[in-house]
Structure formats: C-alpha cells, structure tokens
Design a protein around this nucleic acid. Structure first.
Lengths: 213, 213
DNA sequence: TAGATTGTTAATCGATTAACAATC
DNA sequence: TAGATTGTTAATCGATTAACAATC
C-alpha cells in the first residue's frame, strides 16, 4: 500500500496520466523494465524529473536496475484510483454531452456514465447509448437511489452557474466542467475544467506567433 | 499596434483567454474601467499578476485610474488574433468530431470550421450542419483550393499518429489534437492537446484525495 | 493637490535540473 | 565485483508576489 503524508504538487499529478499512457504503450510492446533515463527520453523530459516524480510516492525503482514497467503501471493506476469504478452523470444532452456519453474510453479507465439529464421536454426519454435522457428535476430522486461520484457539466453557458449551484446543493462533490465559465463552488467540491475555447485561443496564438518550441 | 520582442511565457498566454472572458463579462455588465486589484479579486489572482501579465505586452493601464475595460478587451483579442478568421477542418467525423462541428461558440471567436473529413465510406456525403463529410483522400485537392489554418484531430486512437503524419506532410501547421497520444511533429507544426482522459484522471485523483484547495 | 493605481524592480516561492552517495 | 541506476539533496531556473517610485 502506498503511503504519503505531504500533499503532492498538482504539476506532478497532471503528469501521472501521461506516465500511465507511456507505460501502457511499453507494456503493449512487451518491455518489462525501464530506466528513468530511457523513459525520460521517450517522453521528452529529464530523468531527474521522472525519478523526482515517482519518489513523491515512495520510490518504485530498484537501484542499478530501473523500474518494473508492469508494477509502475499498476502503482500509478492505484494512485489515480483507476481501479475504483467512478459513477458519472452527464448534465446537458447536447451534442457535446452526447459525444461524451458515447465515448467508450472513459469506462475502460473506470469512469462509467450511469445517467444523462437535460431539461428540454422534447428530448426527455430519448436514448443515448443505453441511457434514456431524464429530466433534471428527477435528479434528487435519482441521487437517493444511486451513488454518483462525478457530474459532467455540458449545459449551455447561460445555465452553467445555476445548474452547478443546483447539483452541488444536492451533494455532488466533483464536477467535470465543459462550460466556458469559472464555477464558484464550496471548497469541498472539486472542479476540473475543460475550456475548449481557451485551448483553441492558445493554439491560435501559437500558430500566429509560431511559438512552438 | 502592440510591440514586443521577447517571447511571452506560456503561463501568461494560457491566462489570456481567461482575462478575455472576465472582461467580456464586465463589458456585459456595463463596467467600463477596472483596477488590477478589482480584476484580480474577481479572478482569484493577485493584482501583481494582473499588472505583470499585461505589462508583458507594453502596459495598457493608466496610473491612478486603472484599465479601460473595452480597450483591454480589444487588445487581448488582438494578441490572441481573435480578429482574424481561422479556417479549421475536422478530421474524424465520430461523435466528438460531430459535436465540435456543431459547436457554435468557436466561430463567434473567429474559428470557423470549413470542412469535415473521414474515411468510412458509409458516412461520406452525409451532412453535419452545412458540411458534407468528405473522404480524407480528397484532402490534398481540398488544400489546393482552400486555405486551412488548423486541423482538428478527432480520429480513433490507433489512427492518430498516421493521420497526423499525413496531414503534416500536406502542409498543415496547427493541430488541435483530441487523440490521447503525444504527436511527434516537425518543429514548425503547433500542437495543442485536449487529453480528456488525462483531465478526468486528475479529477478522479483530486476527488479521491480531496486535494482541491 | 491628494489619492489611487500603474509599471517595474526586487524578493520570495516553487518547480525543474544537476549531482552524487547509496546500493542493487 | 564493477557498472548501472536509483532516491535524495543541493543548485538553478522560472514564475509569482511584494514593494514602491512614477504619475495620472
């Protein structure tokens, strides 16, 4: 079991999925051990950073040898909680919400969509994959009968704040927010933003200024 | 006209869309001037950072007064190039590609989808919004007749590398990549990643560890 | 003018990189 | 054992924050 008391910097945490992806690839390639130098080279980061990052969690390597790929892969999965199934609901069954509902990769990593909500009466009852779109008014009742870990917020911009306030009032503790606004939530509610337009603007800037490398 | 020689750090650039959003809101509220202190408070950052950021581009404020909201808003739009229309093509007409094609907010900020490509013969010719899905084989010809700034990559994971290599070989210089892989591209090709699963894993981690604030 | 607030320089903080003793 | 490579401490680098003279 992994032990660590000091909180890990978010810079390190944001690199973990990337390590995880590279390690998955190595596994697929049948590579069973790797050094920090080799992994760093593949990922375009320094070996120091690789070792520094992993040592945050207690050190998974063997001096003179390197890291066991399968073990390291599994440990990162543990740290990220990929072995626990997380139940997600989607709020907003527009094209983006629908696309996320149809995305198969999330469930493979333990993130399972269990229901979809909207408020447009015309679409209530329609099916997306195996889920009928439910009316948002039925969410309180749904939460009584189902455990929900994460709400995916894909509502139109002008409803973002209101809906976020509503779902947090019902006890939702984690929001994956696709609405291009900053949500103000109680401090025990985790928000992770995907601000598509921000990302596109940064791309546009770098394209214009050729700021790549 | 804005002048600056030294390249601006990417930390600053990534904050610009956020400033832009806040300034849009202020404009909507009819607020015409704002101090770095007030703006910082609203955004949850220090006034120092606000001033430091804007001073990278030459300083837009007036001592003793603050910043003119409309002017600042316009200047950030200029820096980000939002006044220039960028032509985008979508490669991969799955649910995610389709959702992005239907998204109306991009065009409002100058990012216009002009064509959609895929390779599945069953869907070639089908319409998404006003665009017929074209076969990827017709891309070279399309590029001869149309200016394209940005390619949005929404193909399945196993085709990501191949398709990226193909489109860069055809002269594409900017890729908005939704495929959960690292693209290796020539140094004059800009890549901006949206790694949905990475973001979700970070959310899962913070949810588990309640690492929010 | 006096008060407010900028732009900028200096100080601090945190993250990355380098170095190396420990050890497999 | 000798060579390789870790985990960790120290040095460097960059980004954020604080301070303040300039000035509207």
């Amino acid at each position: 079991m992994v032990k660590y008391r000091k909180s890990i910097s978010s810079a390190v945490i944001r690199r973990l999925p990337r390590y995880y992806r590279y390690l998955s690839t190595l596994l697929d390639m049948g590579i069973s051990k790797i050094s920090s130098k080799d992994l760093g080279n593949r990922m375009g980061i320094t070996s120091s950073q690789v070792r520094q990052d992993f040592s945050c969690f207690g050190g998974y390597g063997l001096q003179g040898y390197g890291y066991d790929v399968e073990f390291l892969h599994q440990e990162i999965a543990n740290i990220l909680g990929l072995n626990t199934v997380r139940h997600m609901i989607i709020i907003g069954a527009g094209s983006l919400g629908t696309a996320l509902a149809k995305h198969k990769e999330f469930e493979k990593k333990g993130f399972k969509v269990i229901a979809i909500f909207d408020v447009k009466s015309e679409i209530i009852g329609q099916k997306i994959t195996e889920h009928e779109i439910r009316h948002l008014d039925t969410l309180p009742q749904f939460l009584e009968n189902n455990h929900v870990d994460i709400a995916i917020l894909t509502v139109p911009e002008n409803f973002g704040r209101e809906v976020a306030a509503y779902i947090t009032s019902l006890g939702i503790k984690a929001i994956w927010n696709f609405v291009p606004i900053e949500l103000k939530t109680p401090s025990d509610v985790i928000v992770e933003n995907i601000h598509l337009i921000d990302s596109l603007m940064v791309l546009g800037y770098n394209y214009k200024n050729n700021n790549n490398k």
